[in-house]
Design a protein around this nucleic acid. Structure first.
Lengths: 343, 343
DNA sequence: CTGAAAGCGCTTACAG
DNA sequence: CTGAAAGCGCTTACAG
């Protein structure tokens, strides 16, 4: 690789001092248009690359922010990430993304690396086993941080999530209205606050209808398609199987529908299935998945805006945004066609 | 934010010189275990954060690499990205990812930013309108770079892609064997080299069977679900509609199947549909999508390995890996059940 | 094993 | 508007 070209080289080529080059680079202070053009021409000619590390050394205001995503293979988080990027970018920040694949070790490596590179804030979709302790430690170090989607018990930081309890309750009430009484719950790990919230809504709706919850029909599993398949298969192997299942999220639901089909039954006919998230996959699944829409892209934008407020100091403390969760009735719940949502 | 703690603070707290702290940090040179422990304890107590920018200034060997992805909402690219991350991480590199959403402007911003932050290499899934010129400029500046998935005409850099021509030819031969003669092609933009390669395979198969291509049945569109829906709808509005369509990729095919259904027809029965990529969505679509499998995760791993060779200098020049593309017969092509692949 | 010194590429006052 | 100087946090020889 050719020796690095620095502002000194540019200054020499443009016949100015390196202070002037720096002023052109940062846009601070006044420089005559002719001078600025000459400097820019020199940068182009010499293939100059600005050295952020050196700049941040002197002026520690960085415009990079980190996005730490727990599972990029889940389209819900991909849509969320795209929403975050959209607002961060239009605000002049450059978001760098990393996937933790639900590994806490990987999460702490990635977060550390982002701090070392001078990120001015982080949006974190925490792994399922994150605890309030490590998140608070980060925040106490002065790092602006917004938790997205997944609440973490004990974490005293900003949060953007959806109304998990209300969304699940609405879905459960819908199944009850369709006449279901043996309703299972599939997916998520018990330690996840999000699952606790969703189960709370589920329980609340069943209690209101005086329907008992059978703990043997509450199956934990990782929030993935494959795990949903396995968990649903286990549920189907039980005697007295449920007539309906609520799933932790859409990918689990799609896995569950696959298991139902593989078992020789028809989702939406023999067993009602409901998801959570309303990813585009839910719309295109077969049968089309009844699910709870939370607006992944919108939540992402909210999280981006919230992080910007944390960074700028416009927010005086941690903020919380709980987005609406709306039941979308399609085919997989077996509801009569005329009561379904379009698309 | 508290004033930054530096190695000088650590040195003072641990009662050593800052050289010693640096040696502990970098692992260069020998330090007694007791001293090293004292240093590490001080770092923990004071909440020390290593400043990569400062370190890179003196020793410009960075362990960050960039992954630039053109469309993260397409599950194919998400799977690819996960494969790339897997090998990069296990090799001690920390991959930062950015999504360009098919915007060339965004791509150059993101690439520039990665260079400014001292990335030691970049894996680039280029936007549809990337040209060889800008990619060669990057490479000439000495940046190790691997193009993934999308060949770019004129680019003289390393490439990991699939055998687009052979894969498309196999898919077309399959449709011909099923008796189809009016076969359309939906999706991709004409300027994309990948589309040209796929069309070449398609044309080759049709020519071998002495079947003419009707240019009015070749519809360009962006490689997205929505664009596939619109393009297929346009094709269906034509007189003498095709009995089969090959689609640029799976997301286009899923959009096309939706359009067929919306038109009152049944994909796989009234019109055969074939995709490309074999994303997990293809398996779970209804009807299950016949497609060309390229192994997204594997290609990602290959790309990661290739970049590592470019960075280390183990590669003496640009390398190319063309992965196998294998037809996977499911339901959407209307093949008789006994000839279908499992799952 | 440790300490003093130089220097990486930049920005920031400050004097002209 | 420009130039000389100091300093950001680190690493790298080099002398002890």
């Amino acid at each position: 690789m050719a020796p690095r070209v620095t502002i000194i080289d540019i200054a020499r080529a443009a016949g100015v001092s390196k202070s002037t080059v720096s002023i052109v680079l940062t846009g601070s202070g006044r420089v005559s248009p002719e001078t600025a053009d000459a400097v820019r021409a020199a940068m182009r000619d010499l293939g100059y690359v600005y050295n952020r590390g050196a700049a941040n050394l002197r002026n520690p205001k960085s415009h990079v922010v980190g996005m730490v995503i727990n599972d990029l293979s889940n389209p819900f988080f991909a849509e969320l990430a795209i929403g975050i990027e959209r607002v961060l970018r239009t605000s002049g920040y450059i978001p760098f993304m990393a996937n933790t694949a639900e590994s806490l070790l990987r999460q702490s490596e990635v977060v550390r690396s982002m701090r070392e590179h001078g990120a001015s804030g982080i949006i974190l979709c925490p792994t399922a086993d994150s605890t309030g302790r490590e998140i608070n430690e980060l925040a106490e170090l002065g790092m602006p941080i917004v938790l997205a989607i997944r609440r973490v018990a004990g974490a005293r930081v900003s949060l953007v999530a959806s109304d998990n309890r209300a969304g699940s309750a609405a879905a459960a009430r819908h199944l009850l209205a369709l006449g279901h009484r043996r309703i299972g719950y599939v997916g998520g790990m018990a330690r996840m606050a999000v699952r606790q919230d969703r189960i709370a809504g589920f329980s609340e709706a069943l209690a209101a209808a005086s329907v008992a919850i059978d703990p043997t029909r509450m199956i934990e599993c990782a929030p993935t398609k494959d795990a949903g398949f396995v968990a649903m298969s286990a549920l189907l192997a039980q005697p007295n199987r449920p007539t309906a299942v609520m799933c932790f999220n859409d990918v689990v639901a799609i896995g569950a529908m696959l298991a139902i089909t593989r078992h020789g039954l028809t989702p939406g006919v023999d067993i009602a299935v409901v998801g959570f998230d309303d990813t585009s996959e839910a719309r295109h699944a077969s049968p089309a998945l009844t699910t709870v829409s939370v607006g992944a892209g919108d939540l992402g934008e909210r999280a981006g805006q919230m992080l910007l407020r944390q960074i700028s100091g416009a927010a005086t403390g941690p903020e919380t945004h709980i987005g609406e969760a709306r039941l979308v009735v399609r085919e997989s719940c077996g509801a009569p066609a005329q009561s379904r949502d379009v698309a």
